[in-house]
Amino acid sequence: MSESASTGQVKILLVDDRPENLLALEAILQGLGHQLLRAGSGEEALKHLLGEEVSLILLDVQMPGMDGFETAEHVKRREKTRDIPIIFLTALEAGGHQAFRGYSAGAVDYLAKPFDPWVLRAKVGVFIELHEQRRALQRQRDRLQRRAQRDAEEMLALLERVEVATADAPPDVTARLQPPLAALRERLEERRR
């Protein structure tokens, strides 16, 4: 478990090629209690995502080299990062084509600069909460799946004892028991996987 997961602190990745924009984002978000990670390019953002468990990405659209759209496409292709919400930030005219391209690349929201700091803070709060709820549900699903596998293994062990105990039963009893026991074994084997 990562340090941020154990302390409850989430990480937000801020991606912009202009240091002054990163500084402004940090100033807006610093009071929320989240760890803010900086990346000056799409490539640097992808490197962060290799080793960090990030809960939200604020991503500038216009950057030299790998732009925000291409960066988002890379993020969404990876199993580990595909569910991280991305909010695009752009100085471009927020025309329909650009917004559509942002949503197509996997963004959950698209804000045009200059944006209202309070709106950004509110959106960050909502998307962090949704992402954390999704992760909590995933952890619960994993626990339930492990429990179901353990229960299936226990039931299979019990079934083996029943099969051994009925092996010496009269042939007519054995013939009646074999189909339901075989069906039960098959269902338990599936559940154990």
Results as ranks from 00 to 15, higher is better:
E70L: 13
D83P: 02
P114Y: 10
I86L: 09
G40N: 12
H131V: 00
K47D: 13
E53C: 05
L58C: 09
G96H: 08
L50H: 04
I57T: 02
Y110V: 00
G125V: 00
K76P: 04
Q98W: 09
G68H: 10
T71S: 09
H97A: 11
I87N: 03
Q62Y: 06
G68S: 12
W118D: 15
A39K: 05
P117Q: 10
I57F: 11
F100N: 10
A45R: 02
Y103S: 05
K113N: 08
L120R: 02
R78W: 04
R82A: 08
Q62V: 12
A39W: 04
A107E: 01
L56R: 01
V54H: 07
G106I: 01
S104A: 12
P64Y: 15
L46R: 14
G68W: 03
L36W: 08
I128N: 05
T90D: 07
A91I: 06
R77A: 14
E52K: 12
I84K: 00
A39S: 13
Q62L: 13
A112N: 13
Q62T: 10
W118C: 08
V119H: 05
S55W: 04
F88N: 01
E93R: 12
L46M: 08
E70Q: 12
T71I: 05
P64N: 12
A45D: 03
A112T: 05
K47H: 07
L92A: 15
F69A: 02
P85M: 09
K123R: 15
P114R: 04
D67N: 15
E43G: 15
L130Q: 14
M63I: 11
A99H: 04
E43Y: 06
F127I: 00
Q35T: 05
R82L: 12
M66H: 08
R78H: 10
A39F: 03
K123D: 02
G65Q: 11
G95F: 05
H48W: 13
